[in-house]
Structure formats: structure tokens, C-alpha cells
Nucleic acid binder design. Sequence first.
RNA 1: UCCCUGGUAGCUCAGUCGGUAGAGCGUCGGACUGUUAAUCCGUUGGUCGUUGGUUCGAGUCCAACCCAGGGAG
Length: 396
Amino acid sequence: MTAEFTLLGTAGAARRGRLQLAHGVVETPAFMPVGTYGTVKAMTPEELAGLGADIVLGNTFHLMLRPGKEIVRAHGGLHGFMNWRRPILTDSGGFQVFSLESLRKITEEGVNFRSPIDGGAVRLTPEDSMDVQLALGSDIAMALDDCTPHPATEKQARESMERSMRWAVRSHAHYYGKGCADAGLDAAPGELFGIVQGGMHLPLRLASLAELDKLPWKGLAVGGLAVGETEEERLRILEGLVPHMPANRPRYLMGVGRPRDIIAAVLRGIDMFDCVMPTRHARNGHLFTSEGVVNIRNAAHQSDVRPLDPACSCYTCRNFSRAYLRHLDRCNEILGSRLNTIHNLHYYLDLMRKLRAGIEAGSLDPVLRAYAQEAAQEPTQEPTQEPTKGSQVSVA
RNA sequence: UCCCUGGUAGCUCAGUCGGUAGAGCGUCGGACUGUUAAUCCGUUGGUCGUUGGUUCGAGUCCAACCCAGGGAG
């Protein structure tokens, strides 16, 4: 067993947990910085660890194309390749079914892509995705899914979801079976998560969950959200779906999101998140602060000698002015991307620390007040569970 | 003094046969949710060196002048 989830406590529907993985422990609720190509852009592994990241993402599809699984395998896996010794979760390529819609064709067998690099034909079946993720040595691998575009009719969402469920069965069988044998492994180096699909149709979501429940996944993800739907639709799906997800296993909301989205999802029982937003927004000059998003490119900051966020304790805010950050951005200096990324990741990871501490304390109200500028929507239903405090609560 | 080449948006430059001007960059603003993204979108922008002339109509053709660069002496 290389994925043990311990529920340490709850506050309403929000959960405080600890996930033991092959390369270490992940405290939940957790935010996982995205490192598609085996690097969280602009950050060294040491910096990421210093910021408090327990786990990062890699991407099966992109790493399969460059540099290819054999080169990564020659480094003992993705951990050795990128010199990140803590846990790694890899997305299966399912998101590229959505994001590279114009470059792919879906068949029952899998997905046929045109490579975004050279236009060549690239096949990705559930078995291919598992082979790559086994070679990468991911602590958590994801089943290959068909991330349903939005909007989708009930018929489209159902066909897409049912395909994802068939692919999930194949992913599971290959990951724990023939894939290991083919790679010469005695056992899988990590564990596999299944992904709930079903678009904005709650009955389809519940049917997807019921289908996945037939297999012993180590955790379950909610996919296909934050793809263009309204916040109300997203919360409606979460509120209808999450209470039915197994309580003793981690729940991962894929690709989400803004701080307010994360807060709202934690309040509804989600344990894990990933999103490109802190890192991409950093490089594009959008910085998260205690007083809202600051676009450091704006002329208003041209001669502002104050720190970006006086309430922030990150390296960037302790040492540099808004005017300097704007200057670096305007000059397209690499250090601008780095300092901005340090700050945004600190903001996200600090938010997670505060959410964890809040759950441990039995109430998220102080956190919600502290992040009031994010205008997080509270659950529409009163929590039914009594706030409890876990017996093994540790310092976050 | 003469010859040549230029002068068009803040900058660097396009501008067809004469039909009242465009691009890139810059400025200013916006977007971004399991990264095809240090990306993308929009905005701001001009007495076309000056003065005349030809023409229905001139950035474009003609003349003079001004300015810049180069060359000759």
C-alpha cells in the first residue's frame, strides 16, 4: 500500500486529512502546483519545497512527447529527472482531450492526436497512458478520461462519461496488471485515481461515481469542471456529488482553480486541488494579494515603492517593491516571473495552510473572514455534521 | 559648393497605376481554472518635413526651400 489516507478531522463538510504516498506525506486539503513538463515553471525544486508544496503535477501527454518516457525512466522516473523527491501526481492526458480538441480524434480505442510539436500522429490509449505513468513513477497516476467539453447535451455528456468509465476499467486493469509486467515491475510504483465525469448533469455524475465504485481506486477525482460553466453550475454539481463520494478516500477536484473556487470546494468536502492559475497568472503579471488581484503591469504601480502585499511574508514581498516588480515585468526579465511565481504560490499554499488550521480548530469562519475579498460562496445547505476535531491533529 | 538617399504614429518602417494612410514594437487596459501560454486579445495613436504647383482628387507627380545621413571637391 503506497497511498494511505487518514481523516484527521472535519469542520462541517470540510475535511482535514493526511495522505501517505510512496515519496512522502501530503497534508490535505492540498494544493498541487502544476509542472506540466517536469518543472513548475520558474521554480527550482528547493524553492517549491521551501514554499511548502507537498506534491506537484506532471503531465503524461506532454512528457510522453518530450522527452519521452524512456529518457525519464533512465533517470529512475520523474522524481529523479526533475530532482523532486516528494510526491508527484501525473495527469493522464485526459485534459488534452479537452484542451487540444482541434488536434485530436476520439475512438473507442483511445485518442489520436496530432502532435502540437510537429503535427505527427500520436496515439494515446488508456494502456499507453498507464505505461507512461508507470515509467514516470508517479505517486498518483490518473485514469485516462475523456474530459467532456462544455456545453454538452445530456446525450453527449453521457456518451463521453460512459467512454471515460470504459477507459477507467482498462486503465485500472493495465496499471495494476499487464503494464507492471511489461515494465518489469513487481508492483506499481504508485496508486491510481479514477475520475468522475458527466458534464453538468448530476444524474450522469452519480452514475459515473457508481460505475467507478466497482473498482478499488485509492482516490477519486472530479473532472470536467471549470471548463466554461458558471460558478453556480459548478457548485450545484459539487454539492450533489461530493457527499456521495467515499469518505475514507481522498477527493480531488481537477484543475480548480481560483482561490474562491478552492475555498468553496473545501467547504463542500474536497481534499486536493491543482491549477495553473498561480503560476501562469504570475508570469502574466496577475498577483494574488490580501486585498484582491493586483495587475502589476498597470501604470498605477509605476512608482509605488511599497511591497506588493504588506500582509504577505513571502520572499518577494519581504524584499521588493511594486515598482520593481512592474519594472521587471515590463522589461520581460526572468526574475519578474520568478518573484511573481514565488509570491502567487506562497499565496495559494498559505491559503491551504490556513484552511487546514481552520478545520483543525473546528471552524473555517476566521479563514472565510480573512479571505472575504475572495467572496467565496458558502454551501447552500447547512452542514449536517457536527464539527469534530481529529485525535491526530498535527501542526500544518 | 555640387551630387546621391531619405523625411509617414512615441520608435523602426510599409504604402501598388494618383482615389484623404497601415504594420511591428511601445503606451494603456483586459483575459487566463487537470499549461500547445514569460501567452493571447483589445486600446491609444499621424497638419504624411514646409510652401507652392499640376489634377475632379496628391503620402504618391513637379518646383523651391528646410532638416538628416552619405559621397565628391
